[in-house]
Amino acid sequence: MAVRVQREDFDPGAEIAALTAGNTAVGGLAVFVGLVREMAENRQLSAMTLEHYPGMTEKMLERIEAEAKERWPLEASLIIHRHGRLEPGERIVLVAAASPHRDAAFDACRFLIDWLKTQAPFWKLEEDSKGTGTWVEARESDEEAAGRWQ
């Protein structure tokens, strides 16, 4: 069980290999990796800057992870979230859940990202080709996705 908030990039292959190394109880590992998309609505982005609330962010991510562990029989889990300025194609977030069986791994992985999106204090500022910044507004569909797990 681990949570990391960092500016630098991460290597998904190395991360998931390390997560389950030596743990032969794991039968399934589900991973979600979020990337900066080039198009937002109808605008082309040149970058996205992620701001967060140091201290509260880690606390909320740890709580989300603990909640997943309560609900599913997890052998291992990992949340990595980047902050700072990122360009299209760059990785933003990785969540992973490992369990003896695949159903728990899939469900826990989905839960981690859905809850993270509505609970963890991160904010995205989109920057277009002219350098104009727009704060991303929270989506109702994200609330609905998180609500499925209530």
């Binding site: 609330y53 979230h81 993270l116 999106k117 509505t118 963890a120 904010w123 995205k124 991303v136 929270a138």
Partner: peptide, 10 residues
């Protein structure tokens, strides 16, 4: 006390 808009991470 922190004031902020609805969160948009992930």
């Amino acid at each position: 006390v922190a004031l902020f808009p609805p969160v948009t991470g992930g």
